[in-house]
């Protein structure tokens, strides 16, 4: 019993404290965005049609690298500022993968036997899934409207009219004169938003870390490896389930994937692509921004697309000749530090 508590505390604490500074950073950025970003600026800058907006969103991680924990906090405020929902979803899903630091750590972990092809596959599949999910979300959004998909806290104020890709045409919000505020008043507003968002999201991060720590006590890597040995099509969903349970940071997950020496590249890709998009702690954190209908859409899309793309990858691409020494190495190089926001 004591040993179980000891292991639980270590797993729980490591997940929580690793994410904590990035939640703080995200909350402060959220406070600044809420206070200083003009209400209609984003909507004016974004393309008016869905596809380019979603594609830009999916690639934003290259310019604004953020880890999956911090991104949720910031997204909530950007949605309020008129960022199209589909674009937000594609950035939120692809950002933690299509990210220079994550791609480099993937290369280090999977080099030399998979190397750059594995990096390209991870980025490509992740980007594809994020964009397709973004487009599906856009279609759902057009059908059911904002209120059915977003929590009130993420809905833009009435002056912004809409967060859909129908860019705000009305000049009302933009043309409203900004009331003069003192520096102290602005700092107060930023701090109030930051503390509110930090507390709101950290509650669910904590609950997610508790769930993940319990799950890690029940499921071991050996179980997954044994379950999936010689059954590659079972290995893919098994590795996807493991990614959801482990709640690993996207900068570190490639090293864990590489430690599954008997797994095919396709099952490793399933692990590496799904993990940054969906895990227990993220699922709980999503509930602070999205309503269940949107969460269900995201979960369905990411899981089904990861499964299908991994199976296709298994069918068409097997870069690993099973010769002696041909297995991917257990990593030894130091990791890149997790990416902060710019």
């Amino acid at each position: 019993m004591f040993r179980d508590v000891q292991d639980f505390v270590l797993n729980f604490s490591s997940i929580l404290w690793e994410a904590m500074p990035f939640i703080v950073l995200g909350a402060i950025i959220a406070g600044i965005l809420e206070e200083l970003l003009p209400q209609t600026l984003i909507a004016r800058l974004m393309p008016k049609s869905a596809l380019p907006a979603v594609m830009i969103g999916g690639a934003l991680g290259l310019i604004f690298p953020m880890c999956e924990c911090g991104i949720v906090v910031v997204m909530r405020r950007l949605l309020r500022k008129g960022l199209p929902l589909s674009c937000c979803v594609s950035y939120m899903l692809a950002g933690p993968i299509v990210n220079v630091i994550v791609l480099f750590s993937t290369y280090v972990a999977l080099d030399p036997h998979y190397g750059w092809p594995a990096v390209a596959l991870r980025a490509g599949i992740g980007y594809f899934i994020a964009c397709v999910t973004g487009l599906v979300v856009h279609a759902v959004h057009l059908r059911v409207g904002t209120a059915a998909l977003l929590k009130e806290v993420a809905v833009p104020p009435a002056s912004a009219k809409s967060i859909s890709l129908t860019v705000i045409d009305g000049p009302a919000a933009a043309d409203e004169p900004e009331p003069k505020k003192s520096v102290m008043q602005r700092l107060d507003n930023i701090s109030a938003t930051a503390l509110h968002d930090f507390m709101d999201i950290t509650v669910f991060l904590t609950l997610g870390a508790i769930l993940a720590a319990f799950a890690k006590m029940l499921v071991t890597q050996e179980d997954i490896q044994l379950l999936s040995r010689d059954m590659p099509y079972l290995a893919i969903p098994a590795m996807m389930a493991l990614a959801v349970v482990l709640c690993l940071c996207s900068e570190a997950d490639a090293f864990v994937a590489a430690s599954f020496t008997e797994m095919s590249l396709s099952s490793k890709m399933a692990f590496l692509v799904l993990g940054p998009m969906l895990d227990l702690k993220l699922l709980l954190m999503y509930t602070r921004v999205f309503r269940w209908k949107l969460i269900a859409t995201i979960v369905t899309c990411t899981i089904s697309l990861t499964l299908v793309s991994s199976i296709v990858l298994h069918q068409v691409y097997d870069p690993l000749p099973l010769t002696a020494g041909g297995a991917p190495p257990t990593p030894v190089l130091p990791p890149a530090a997790p990416s902060p926001t710019p």
Partner: peptide, 13 residues
Amino acid sequence: KMTCCAADMIPLK
């Protein structure tokens, strides 16, 4: 070996 945190610890053997 820890890559980021204890949750991602793997054994080198």
